[in-house]
């Protein structure tokens, strides 16, 4: 019995170690993107799709939503740009939302990092409004 308990304890410890390593590494992941500041991350919500999937395919998701919404009148779609902004916008100390296209913010930070520039914000609001 003692052996069993020992084994269980060992497994538990191992799990804890692994988990903490995992969490550290995922923190590093975000640090690598220089944008680990998404408000969404702190709110225990999940993205509209799997995070890793979103990382690569969000432009397709948004485009799909754009066509559905603008041309077919479907609202509340998964890839809605305004929804991205609702979740991913950050607030400053006073609780005022910071535009998502501002330097270092969630969307802009990564886009700067990968060298993409968007024209969306010429028309679309960069903070949640009406």
């Amino acid at each position: 019995m003692k052996v069993r308990a020992f084994e269980h304890g060992l497994l538990l410890a191992l799990a804890v170690v692994l988990l903490s390593i995992a969490s550290v590494s995922s923190a590093e992941e975000k640090a690598g993107w220089k944008n680990g500041t998404s408000l969404a991350a702190t709110q225990e919500k999940s993205c509209v799709r799997d995070t890793a999937f979103m990382r690569r395919n969000h432009m397709e998701v948004i485009k799909h939503a754009r066509i559905d919404t603008v041309r077919k009148g479907v609202r509340g779609v998964d890839g809605s740009l305004s929804e991205c902004i609702v979740c991913h916008v950050n607030k400053d100390d006073k609780g005022v939302p910071i535009p998502v296209n501002q330097e270092g913010q969630f969307c802009a930070g990564c886009h700067q990092y990968v060298g993409v520039s968007l024209d969306c914000y010429q028309c679309h609001a960069t903070v949640p409004t009406h």
Binding site: V48, G76, D78
Partner: peptide, 20 residues
């Protein structure tokens, strides 16, 4: 930095609403 994309099961989409 994003290994294991293949492992996930597709997230169930919200109902998409209806086209006009």
């Amino acid at each position: 930095v994003a290994p294991g994309v293949m492992l996930h099961t597709a997230v169930v989409a919200k109902p998409l609403g209806e086209a006009v």
